[in-house]
C-alpha cells in the first residue's frame, strides 16, 4: 500500500483559511465572468476561444491531479479523440453542433473508463507511464486510421447552427457559445469538488490507506474522477475542433499532454482558478512568441523550471497564500 504522492496541492497548503465555501469564491468568479464577457470586444474572439478550450482542458486535468493526486500523462488522448469524433460527427454524419460536441464528450468519457480502469490499478509513476503508453498507442492509431485523415486531419468541419437556429459562423456568436460551454464545465467541476463525493476524493488524495481503512473503496473514487476528467477534456477537445474547423494529430500528440500539465503547474495545482490562468499564460506565450519558431518550446521549458524552482505553488497558489484565502 505504498503510495507515491504528488506534492500537496497548492490550494490547500497550510496557512490558507479552510472555509473554502463556494461562497467565498463569489467575487473572483464574478470578475472572471465579466472579463470573459467584455474580452471579445477588445481581443480577437478566435484567440479567446482557443484560450477557453485549453482553460477547460486544464481545469479537467486539474480535477484529476489536484483533487485525487493522479498524474495522467496521456490526457491528450481524450482531448484529441473527442476532437476527431466531434469533427467526424459534424462533417460526415452531419450532426448539429450540440450533438457533435456531445459525441466527442461521450467518446472521451468512454475512453476514460477504459484507460482509467487499466491505469488506476497502478500507483504513482506506473500510473503515469500506463496513461502515456495508452495515449501513444492511440496517437499511432490516429496516424493510421482512415477516418482521422492521418497527417491531414479532418479539415473544413462545419460549425453548423446552434439548436438548428443560430448560425455559428459568426465568431462573436461562436465565442459566447464556447464561453457557455466553458462556464458549464467550470461550475460542474466546482460542484464536484464541493460535493460529498469531493470530500472522499480529497481524503483519498490526502491519505489513501486511511481512506480505505474507513471503508472507502479508493479505486472507485479514482475511476469516477478519471472518467469525469476525461469527459470534460473531451468537451474541451470537441468544442475546439469545431471552433477551429480542424481536428489534427497535434491534439492527440503527447506534447499536448505535456502542455496541459505545464498549464496546471504554472497556474497552481489544486486551485480553482490556477488552470485557467496557466492556460491563458501558455497560450499567450505561444502566440506572441510564435515568431521565435522552435524557441517557444525553450521559453516554455524555462518557464517550467522557474515555476518549479521559484514558485512551486503556481501563480494562483502563491497568490492564494499571500491573500490567505483559497482561490
Amino acid at each position: 500500500m505504498t503510495t507515491h504522492r504528488v506534492e500537496a496541492p497548492a490550494g490547500v497548503q497550510g496557512g490558507v483559511s479552510r472555509r473554502d465555501d463556494v461562497r467565498s469564491l463569489r467575487i473572483p468568479i464574478l470578475a472572471m465572468v465579466l472579463l470573459a464577457v467584455v474580452a471579445p470586444f477588445v481581443i480577437y474572439p478566435v484567440f479567446l476561444m482557443k484560450m477557453l478550450c485549453f482553460a477547460l482542458f486544464a481545469c479537467a486535468f486539474n480535477l484529476l491531479i489536484g483533487y485525487v493526486g493522479l498524474l495522467s500523462f496521456g490526457h491528450a488522448l481524450f482531448f484529441g479523440a473527442a476532437g476527431y469524433l466531434a469533427g467526424h460527427a459534424a462533417k460526415v454524419w452531419g450532426l448539429p453542433f450540440e450533438l457533435a460536441v456531445l459525441t466527442g464528450t461521450a467518446t472521451a468519457a468512454l475512453l476514460g473508463l477504459v484507460v482509467g480502469g487499466l491505469a488506476i490499478r497502478s500507483q504513482g509513476i506506473y500510473f503515469s507511464m500506463i496513461t502515456l503508453a495508452l495515449a501513444q498507442m492511440f496517437f499511432f492509431y490516429c496516424l493510421r486510421a482512415q477516418f482521422t485523415g492521418g497527417e491531414d486531419g479532418i479539415q473544413a468541419i462545419p460549425r453548423g447552427k446552434l439548436l438548428g437556429l443560430v448560425s455559428l459562423d459568426n465568431n462573436l456568436t461562436m465565442y459566447f457559445v464556447v464561453l457557455a460551454i466553458f462556464l458549464f464545465g467550470f461550475f460542474f467541476i466546482l460542484r464536484v469538488i464541493h460535493s460529498p463525493f469531493g470530500q472522499v476524493m480529497k481524503a483519498v488524495r490526502e491519505n489513501e490507506p486511511r481512506a480505505v481503512s474507513l471503508g472507502y473503496k479508493a479505486d472507485h473514487y479514482k475511476l469516477i474522477t478519471f472518467v469525469l476528467s476525461a469527459g470534460l477534456s473531451g468537451l474541451a477537445g470537441g468544442t475546439k475542433s469545431i471552433v477551429f474547423q480542424l481536428a489534427s494529430l497535434t491534439d492527440v500528440h503527447w506534447g499536448t499532454s505535456g502542455e496541459v500539465i505545464l498549464m496546471v503547474l504554472l497556474g497552481g495545482l489544486g486551485t480553482v482558478f490556477g488552470p485557467i490562468v496557466g492556460a491563458v499564460v501558455i497560450i499567450c506565450v505561444e502566440s506572441y512568441l510564435a515568431g521565435l519558431g522552435g524557441w517557444v518550446t525553450v521559453v516554455q521549458g524555462a518557464l517550467f523550471v522557474v515555476c518549479v524552482l521559484a514558485f512551486r505553488r503556481g501563480i494562483i497558489g502563491e497568490l492564494s497564500r499571500v491573500l490567505h484565502r483559497p482561490l
Binding site: 479552510r18 463525493f197 470530500q199 472522499v200 480529497k202 490526502e206 491519505n207 473503496k217 469516477i224
Partner: peptide, 27 residues
C-alpha cells in the same frame, strides 16, 4: 493517519459520511 489538509471537522465528517453508503454523488 489524518487527512492533513482537511479541517478537523472535515476529517471526522468524511468518516461519518460512510453511513450514507458510498458517497458517489458528485453532483
Amino acid at each position: 493517519a489524518v487527512f492533513p489538509h482537511l479541517t478537523v471537522l472535515e476529517n471526522i465528517r468524511v468518516a461519518l459520511q460512510r453511513k450514507r453508503g458510498s458517497s458517489f454523488d458528485f453532483w
